[in-house]
Simulated assay, not measured.
Amino acid sequence: MSEPSKKEIEISPEVTEKATRRRFTLAYKQQILAEADQCTAPGELGELLRREGLYSSNLSSWRKQRDSGTLGSKQRGRKPNLNKQETQELAKLKRDNARLTERLRQAELIIEVQKKVSEMIGINRREKND
């Protein structure tokens, strides 16, 4: 068997095992958009896209993001809870509501017991009010 030459080792036509998605920094996006905006001659924009390995859809989506002010790269993971204070207040109110509901239930139970006891002893509520 012959050993592979140095040139064969360096240049491999095989596809990598797992493709990785390209990530573009904010500075790179701004640079490409500035270059694309300066393109005036026919074919100049296509040349820029071929050179950078981009699609025209990249430019159009980046332009929309630039116009809306969201051009920066998105952070991965959980989204920040913008209504954290409202969520905390809602949780506090739910706890208070549950606590007060339980106290009301207990108070109604005590009142029912007092009514039954007064009926057993024979205390008439009308006599007391007169």
Rank of each mutant, 00 (worst) to 15 (best):
K94H: 05
L49T: 05
E89H: 03
N58T: 01
P42M: 12
L71P: 03
R76D: 07
L49V: 07
K74N: 11
N97A: 05
A91E: 14
R51H: 06
E52W: 06
K79W: 05
C39H: 05
T70S: 13
G72P: 01
R76V: 09
T87L: 15
L45S: 05
N83A: 13
A91P: 00
G43K: 05
R105Y: 02
K79H: 04
L109N: 13
R51S: 08
R103C: 00
A41V: 12
C39M: 10
L90Q: 12
Q88T: 07
Q38T: 10
S68I: 04
G43W: 11
L71V: 02
S60D: 01
P80S: 13
L100N: 10
R50A: 15
Q106N: 06
T87S: 10
S61Y: 02
L109D: 12
S73D: 07
N97I: 02
E35C: 06
E52G: 00
T40K: 15
T87Y: 02
E47Y: 05
K84W: 03
K94D: 09
L48M: 07
E47A: 14
G53M: 06
Y55S: 13
L45N: 06
W62E: 02
T101P: 00
E35M: 14
E35S: 08
S73H: 02
Q106T: 08
Q106K: 15
Q106H: 07
K84D: 13
